[in-house]
């Protein structure tokens, strides 16, 4: 399958009084046409900074290195205008809070077609017709009336549908949903996730779904990258990461989620301490201070990516990887390890 978006050794760092801090630390991945990549991590792990760096909207003071190859072109080397044209049309973005990412004083119809008119230079009439189509596509009833409405007149779920319509306007190759369903109720979240899947299938579009919630990416993504302290610490086919996870952080994270099928009042496995931020002086494994399996080596040596047995895609950065399960699912294994 053809690779649509490839990110290679992407780093983004910013100078502080104590030295450069890495906001994105040497991240690489590839998204093939029609496939979905999930990116999970806790708050502050660098998920959003990764997206912003890819889109060329990292902070002004930041230093970016590495490659972002979209449809065979390394967009980071392009002049600003050209980069904007390629990224704006090739990648659609949906953000967490539709109320703040939509302009409150502009009717939604105009917001949906803004990108279309900018990138494709089409006229008012044609734009309106396209907006109607898009609203219908994302499942909004009475699209003609909605075009003239303002964001405050729509519910949270509807606003997110409008955001998706706007993101799809230019027929992007990749849709990036950055915590797109986090602010929504679970029943609406499911509608939106189903909608993204549906559109992806019908257009053979790729997607990157970014979430703090492992449940959102489970069963909905082909590849999964787990981020911790600005690094991807484990990545591979989603099924492998869930069932044959190797990194101590991945397995601790999976164990700490309450399991609705477990007994009530089950003690939850916890990860001590709180997520760390990358500082200039960081050495060794980023997760070592919170890791139950950490040894002296972990505090001194930064673990290099290592492939999991028998896989050319599944790799992790851990000196003491968790053993592979014997055919059983990772979740079952994780459960047996509970206190």
């Amino acid at each position: 399958m053809e690779t649509v978006l490839e990110v290679e050794n992407l780093s983004c760092s910013i100078d502080t009084a104590d030295g450069p801090v890495k906001l994105v630390d040497n991240v690489s991945f590839a998204v093939r046409r029609g496939e979905t990549l999930g990116v999970v991590g806790e708050s502050g792990s660098g998920k959003t900074m990764l997206v912003r760096t890819i889109m060329g909207i990292s902070p002004k003071a930041a230093t970016v290195s590495g490659r972002v190859v979209l449809d065979g072109v390394d967009v980071l080397t392009l002049p600003k205008k050209e980069r904007r044209r390629r990224l704006g049309a090739g990648i659609g973005m949906v953000f967490q809070n539709p109320m703040t990412s939509l302009n409150p004083v502009v009717p939604v119809g105009r917001q949906i077609t803004e990108g279309l008119r900018y990138h494709r230079g089409i006229g008012r009439q044609e734009a309106r017709a396209r907006a109607l189509e898009l609203l219908e596509l994302v499942g909004i009833s009475e699209p003609a009336a909605r075009l003239k409405q303002y964001p405050y007149q729509l519910s949270g779920g509807m606003r997110q549908r409008v955001m998706i319509a706007a993101a799809l306007a230019c027929d992007p190759d990749v849709l990036i949903a950055d915590e797109a369903t986090t602010a929504l109720d679970v029943t609406v979240q499911k509608q939106i996730l189903d909608l993204i899947k549906e559109i992806q299938t019908s257009r053979n579009m790729s997607a990157i779904i970014i979430s703090h919630d492992l449940g959102v990416v489970a069963g909905r993504t082909d590849q999964l990258a787990v981020m911790y302290a600005s690094q991807v610490v484990e990545t591979g086919a989603t099924a492998d990461v869930f069932r044959k996870h190797r990194h101590q952080y991945t397995s601790a994270l999976l164990r700490s989620i309450p399991d609705i099928e477990a007994e009530i009042h089950t003690k939850l496995a916890t990860i001590p301490g709180s997520p760390r931020r990358n500082t200039p002086d960081v050495v060794g494994c980023r997760f070592a201070p919170r890791c139950a399996a950490a040894t002296e080596k972990c505090h001194e040596d930064d673990p290099a990516p290592e492939f999991s047995e028998g896989s050319a895609e599944h790799w992790y950065r851990c000196h003491w990887p968790t053993p592979l399960p014997d055919g059983s699912t990772g979740m079952r294994l994780a459960k047996a390890g509970r206190e």
Binding site: G157, D213, G219, T238, I257, I260
Partner: peptide, 22 residues
């Protein structure tokens, strides 16, 4: 419906039925 909508942390393709509307 609420149970079906809870994102399952098991990696499964079956997500149950989806509730209409809001």
């Amino acid at each position: 419906a609420l149970l079906d909508a809870v994102p399952s942390h098991r990696d499964t393709e079956d997500h149950g039925t989806t509730l209409r509307g809001e």
